[in-house]
């Protein structure tokens, strides 16, 4: 039982990282119906900004987190401006392939400077408490609380602010809403900034939890976060959070109770089963097609 609680805590930690990345996918999809395949790599860039801030600049945790988030948010906005905006009216796959290209660019560009995996120092004084046999580290608590805090904040932004309202309106209808005076480009930029910023935060936390980083780390984690977004219902913000925690839980539990090599297999098989029963994810709704 303690083993189970211990694993649950790990699941929460991994799940919150997946959820933070999944949010970026889902927000961009919601507003542009485009899968930003470079998002996993922006998460990786977040981890490397963490490395730069913490090791090269010697900053403590909070400034490091901010450097990573702001840096990646700017990068995300820049990518949207330069690579995606010209393709907004092109066939949808062209944008997707561009995103794949941007992702590859980020990976290989980083690889040029960091051909070898890098180590992230311990930025947070790590104390471990032992409660009824379950060991809880301060790092885990910080990761979980910080992620949940960011998610609540995002939820509030989307639901309560003018920017959030504009985002929801544009995801409802991209053609008409701008005619009503909503600045489309500004809102898209804001969406990218928020989404990639959260992805970078996930990168920082991931780097602290699993302190070896390499330029290709974003690929698999990115795809998995994407799957989380789909499980929750892509385009749905709360769905992405739920999906992230579900995938984190499934992965940790499979690894805990079955041979760890089954982890990916079970995770993806579960995804397929879920898609058979709920083809549009847990909170997603099919977009009705008019005949």
């Amino acid at each position: 039982m303690t083993y189970f609680f211990q694993q649950s805590l790990n699941a929460l930690q991994l799940g919150s990282i997946y959820a933070l990345i999944a949010l970026g996918y889902t927000m961009v999809y919601g507003i542009l119906t485009m899968i930003n395949f470079a998002h996993g790599d922006l998460f990786m860039v977040g981890a490397f900004f963490t490395f730069i801030a913490a090791v090269l600049l010697g900053l403590p945790f909070v400034p490091t987190l901010l450097v990573s988030m702001i840096g990646v948010a700017l990068l995300g906005v820049l990518i949207e401006r330069v690579a995606y905006r010209p393709l907004r009216n092109a066939p949808r796959v062209s944008a997707v392939i561009t995103a794949l290209g941007v992702g590859l660019f980020l990976e290989n560009f980083t690889l040029v400077f960091y051909p070898y995996p890098q180590h992230i120092p311990q930025l947070i004084q790590n104390t471990t408490w032992n409660i009824a046999g379950v060991s809880i580290s301060s790092l885990q608590i910080i990761i979980i609380l910080l992620s949940v805090g960011m998610m609540i904040m995002l939820d509030l932004i989307v639901r309560k602010t003018m920017v959030g309202m504009a985002m929801r309106a544009i995801s409802w209808d991209k053609a008409i809403i701008p005619l009503m005076g909503v600045p489309l480009n500004l809102i898209v930029s804001a969406t990218f900034a928020l989404g990639t910023g959260l992805g970078a935060a996930a990168g920082t936390m991931y780097a602290l939890a699993f302190p070896v980083i390499d330029p290709y780390m974003g690929i698999l984690i990115g795809w998995k976060a994407f799957i989380s977004a789909v499980v929750g219902g892509i385009g749905n913000i709360r769905g992405a959070m739920i999906g992230g925690f579900i995938l984190g839980t499934v992965e940790i539990m499979v690894a805990a109770f079955l041979p760890s090599t089954y982890r990916d297999f079970v995770a993806f098989a579960l995804l397929l089963v879920l898609l058979i029963f709920r083809p549009y994810g847990i909170l997603g709704k099919p977009r009705p097609q008019k005949v």
């Binding site: 690579a83 393709l87 092109a90 066939p91 062209s94 561009t98 590859l104 660019f105 560009f109």
Partner: peptide, 19 residues
């Protein structure tokens, strides 16, 4: 190593100018 940086860059340019 720059080759792997150039390739995706060319892909992105191609997609922008010839989607």
């Amino acid at each position: 190593m720059w080759r792997m940086v150039l390739m995706p860059l060319m892909l992105v340019l191609l997609m922008i100018f010839r989607p």
